[in-house]
Design a binder for these strands. Structure first.
Lengths: 198, 198
DNA sequence: CTATATACGGAGGGGTCCTCCGTTTATCAA
DNA sequence: TTGATAAACGGAGGACCCCTCCGTATATAG
């Protein structure tokens, strides 16, 4: 069976196509920046100077374009995990990465919807999803191995928690709140002293 | 200055108005049930057999109608707090209430958007918001007083966390995940053994 | 029974999403 | 260079949704 993915020589990608794709991403980035996460796709197309049809051909869904815009940010975030692991004990690295996560959301609000899509409903999809999951998994595994946190902590759970904490990033005070919650969560993750109560 | 709010005798509420209001709520409930949280308001009006204008007069915003639909549920949830406090130690009561919260979301998905609105952006508003906050505050205060959890836990934080955990209630497995996270959170809330690490 | 404050309904303006298809154009082979 | 042709473009159009506005209908008070 000869896959097509094996040899990527499936014709050249037309030059104008690639150019438009870039333009769309740039336009989207700008549009998101100054009109919030709900800009109409039509406006993005307008800004990019292409037809709406072109936009849809390149990015069949809204999330697709959001992801494209924030792919870089997401990758940086993911890579930060590795960096943190090199300079700190695993538990702290995990803790710090979570704080960083909050920072990212605070800075680039739109990214939230992308990450939300990763966790909620739309089946952890696409490159970005895998990267974030990967980063979190790494951090958790290390921290667990070193005994900084429980051995049974599930990376996906924690990711959900993070995304959850940053949900509602419109209300004032969400950020400190999220940071406090992260601290609590980390405390809860420390290796069991037997669970009192229930 | 004679206020109108002081004496609520501001004329009778017309009978048909009240009838239509009921119809709208029922229709909305049904519509939510079998078309998800995003039914168009027009459809709700249609089902209720009233004009769209009438719907908007009664419920100026989408959240308003969602809240109306789930006012009862929300109250029950809030009241459950009191009940739990009567039969269990405060810490357990809090823990159990959080689990109950997840159950509610699981059962009536739409309620999530109402609660989301309470916590996110739209400034804890309206009756329901106050009730939930109230319940959570009560539980937290009791648990703190009895030493079951830290004294500095903030009810609103925890509510945010809860709503966050239930965010993404579309992806498979969200529920067990939320429950695990609640357990972790509770562990993290136990009175400080000095915070190791960071 | 009448007057009138209330409530009703839905047309209509303004948007958004997404599809579909006739037109344009980059690429490649001759 | 010069077609031929697959790929890409663009935007009109259908479907839907939100929300407002205002002429019409009616419940209630006197």
């Amino acid at each position: 069976m000869s896959f097509e993915g094996a040899a990527p020589a499936a014709r050249k990608p037309r030059a104008d196509a690639e150019r438009n794709r870039e333009r769309l991403i740039d336009a989207a980035k700008a549009a998101f920046a100054d009109k919030g996460p709900d800009v109409s796709l039509e406006e993005i197309a307008r800004r990019a100077g292409v037809g709406i049809g072109t936009l849809y051909r390149h990015f069949p869904t809204r999330d697709a374009i959001v992801e494209a815009v924030y792919r870089r940010e997401v990758r940086q975030l993911a890579e930060a995990a590795t960096r943190l692991l090199e300079t700190r004990p695993p538990g702290e690295a995990l803790h710090e990465w979570m704080r960083l996560f909050v920072d990212y959301i605070a800075t680039k609000k739109v990214i939230a919807s992308a990450l939300g899509a990763i966790v909620g409903g739309a089946e952890l999809y696409a490159a970005s999803g895998a990267q974030i999951i990967g980063a979190m998994s790494l951090l958790v595994r290390r921290a667990a191995d070193s005994g900084d946190i429980r051995a049974d902590a599930d990376p996906e759970d924690l990711l959900r928690a993070l995304v959850g904490f940053t949900y509602g990033n419109a209300s004032p005070g969400w950020q400190p709140s999220a940071l406090r919650l992260i601290d609590i969560l980390m405390d809860g993750l420390r290796p069991a002293r037997r669970s009192a109560g229930s």
